[in-house]
Design a protein around this nucleic acid. Sequence first.
DNA 1: TCAGATAAAATTGTATACAATAATGTTTTT
DNA 2: AAAAACATTATTGTATACAATTTTATCTGA
Lengths: 233, 233
Amino acid sequence: MLPNNSKSLVDSVKEKGPNLDIYRRLFDSILEQRLAPNTKLNEQDLAQVFGVSRTLIRQSLQRLAAEQVVVMHKNRGAYVAAPDVVLAKQILDARELIELAVVDLACGALSETAVEALRMMVALEEQAFEQGDMGTALRRSGEFHVRLAQAAGNQPYAHMLRGLISQTSLIIAMYGQGGIQCARDEHNDLITALIAGDKTVCADLMRYHLGHLRTSCDFNRRVNSGSLAMVLS
Amino acid sequence: MLPNNSKSLVDSVKEKGPNLDIYRRLFDSILEQRLAPNTKLNEQDLAQVFGVSRTLIRQSLQRLAAEQVVVMHKNRGAYVAAPDVVLAKQILDARELIELAVVDLACGALSETAVEALRMMVALEEQAFEQGDMGTALRRSGEFHVRLAQAAGNQPYAHMLRGLISQTSLIIAMYGQGGIQCARDEHNDLITALIAGDKTVCADLMRYHLGHLRTSCDFNRRVNSGSLAMVLS
DNA sequence: TCAGATAAAATTGTATACAATAATGTTTTT
DNA sequence: AAAAACATTATTGTATACAATTTTATCTGA
């Protein structure tokens, strides 16, 4: 359930606490689809799992709720978010808007070190894929996009995109039907195009890439995710 | 210090608690520039002011921090955020990106009721202005933009824009030099243009409007906001 | 007088205790 | 047996208590 491997991208990179770690592990667990949409997140259970008091669990849940990865119902607890079809499409639209702006900024403007870091990210993503760890592969795929936004040098873009990508993981969990990971070579192609510096090509590549995401989803399919109790209520 | 008037736009419109109120009052206080950038937000003091325990104060501060309106330093407390020049420009860029997308969606697509609500918002904004309550006027000016995004029908746009507009208030507090409110008629002009339905005109109007914001800021001016102690440290 | 060390106070971080609400199970009534 | 009412349990919401850290004040020693 709980990953503890790579230091993922938390916004406030600066000094935080050890409780930041439990937030990150929850966050990653959701992104890696170990926690399905609509899953109830019981505070006491989590406190026991992490070996801390409910105080820290609560903080993490509230932060996740602020990021809309989790929804909190008053007096009824926290659940992994489950975006409906309408919202899902809006999220993908918003992602395209931001990502195209990112590409526009990054095109022909990536530093050597940035390129290296991005290539490394893709390598890690492929490694997870080849090891059959689809959850990690999916999370790293998202991280690639966030890292690209960071490299593009606009903090708000990176911040907003991080949120949108988190929700994209939920969308894939709910409406996806495999075949997304096939597109992972496209990340390398994108890097190459960004170095080459043709904005039209870069934009088209990104649109193409995100298009795969859309076509890999079936928004008609009624979702059975989460606990059955939730579905039948 | 603490406003309690209109129900401002909190993202999770659904059921929340009474502590939501203290978050909102803090949020509004910052947006109305009653709390200047770099102001320290002492937990115990706030707890006393609001008549609650530090628990609820902490929750609100953490949420504000998640929205980047407040910065929390480990073991050193929470401060009203103070975006530097680089970030300020990035925020304004991001705002333009989102707002143009919003305008594109809303152009020729606003319902009757939406138009009415927006007109009302402008009226409230002008009312505060004429009463000399610049803080409230500024906050409502921001609310207008968020409400427009909501009317445009893309939730992520509205959500992201809300964050960017909050930070814009901080930017104005730090780098603004008056003259922003002169542009408040432009909101009504924008509504009219959106109804008319010419996308080029609408986009130009929005760019023009946001351009005023940029020109009303002097990014060279070294900021003296917040407690002197902070500045001199 | 000033720098450094040390002690005191204040502030934040976390855990625990209690209150309020919702969920569950049992009994009672028809 | 079904439905309603009640009691029980579990879960979340808030306050308080304590621990850890930082800030401030005081004291020393050149």
